[in-house]
Write a protein that binds this DNA or RNA. Structure first.
Lengths: 207, 207
DNA sequence: CGCGTGATTGAAACCCTTCAAGTTTAGTGG
DNA sequence: CCACTAAACTTGAAGGGTTTCAATCACGCG
């Protein structure tokens, strides 16, 4: 575990951030809007392997991955960890239980790499909708897309073997496996680390 | 298959519908708004076992179940059917692929019982947001809730045995099993009909 | 009554897990 | 720089849960 990340945030101008480009590029928020909303978001550098949120806590933020990699996990009744999803650059992570029902979080969110995370206040979407016509609509589409992605994952869990799910994962998220320990991928796929190891061996032979 | 459902829609006043009560009860749309939006929704009686949408078609509507039961399914690569979800009274069903990317649908949606379905034009949410302050926010929360439900299902598929998933299903949707053929529940749970039969036998013995 | 669909039951095969033992790898301190 | 250690990954053998295929049973409907 390396803590080489020192703050060099002063070198980063708003226009250079992925966060800005993400919304600005889609014509959803212009620079003026960003400046108006500035009280509602903060960039933070977070070292590797650090929790942004633990189960039981209440989340006050939505997280945007400016740089690095997050994983959200839960503990199941058997006490083992399940990977809910990964989030790399340009992805949002939110704990919806906590944000919208004011329930304690059921998930853990932590960094896998040294990361730069935008902490977005939960009021951000509402305020942004007031400022920008198109923000509400855009946000809506993001949620819809999220639902679609989950639907596909459910379908893969319903109908595919572990090997097929792994191959689909590689195809869908080709950059994630290089950055994530294998046992986390196994957990994401719903198999044991041993099984994934054997699956990889099998694939290697067949090529 | 029975086609006993003849149109007696004239007996149904808007105020008596679940659709109206659903939004009105939450203070999201008042009667006036409903009347304004009338061009954007239609009540239809649909016989049992009838497709509202087939894979490959483009969906123009969101469906609200006024009465009855819908199931949405996909065909996987192996040619067998997977149950994505059920929808009974007060539930919405939407094919998001089709509605928001204008892609052909990847799912089938059909009635399991004789049903009354509200065909809601895809423009309804946008127009309703313009009319009602709170609609957009409410709609947003619905999507969030949807994501949460799916997240729980993913977790159950990752960490639970077939038996545990079945018991959870019974607990979560106690009225569905009475109205749905067993093989569809098996498909929803990601097991074969034979396995579900054995699981039920086992549960019956242990009581 | 007979047909078809859905549900059940059995036996064999298969996929995946479990547990236990190695091997590799990366980070640590001498 | 090398040896040490812990964690991750690999490999093997045994066992369990689920599937597959086939046969049988139950039921509603023409």
């Amino acid at each position: 575990m390396r803590y080489i990340y020192k703050s060099d945030m002063h070198e980063m101008t708003l226009e250079n951030t992925r966060f800005y480009q993400y919304y600005q590029g889609k014509g959803v928020l212009n620079k003026e809007s960003f400046l108006d909303l500035q009280p509602l978001y903060t960039f933070k550098k977070i070292p590797e392997n650090t929790y942004l949120l633990r189960a039981g806590e209440k989340s006050q933020h939505i997280y945007f991955v400016e740089k690095g990699l997050l994983v959200s996990t839960t503990l199941n009744e058997k006490g083992s960890e399940n990977v809910i999803h990964f989030a790399s650059e340009d992805w949002f992570v939110a704990e919806r239980n906590s944000l919208f029902d004011d329930q304690p979080s059921s998930v853990y969110i932590k960094t896998i790499e040294p990361s730069t995370i935008v902490y977005i206040d939960k009021e951000f979407p509402r305020k942004a909708s007031e400022i920008s016509e198109s923000f509400g609509c855009f946000n809506d589409q993001m949620l819809q897309k999220n639902i679609l992605v989950q639907e596909r994952r459910i379908q893969s869990l319903l109908s595919m073997s572990a090997k097929e799910r792994y191959l689909l994962f590689l195809k869908t998220y080709p950059n994630i496996p290089l950055r994530v320990p294998q046992w986390m991928i196994a957990s994401y796929l719903g198999v044991t680390p041993e099984s994934l190891s054997r699956i990889r061996k099998e694939i290697a032979y067949s090529e």
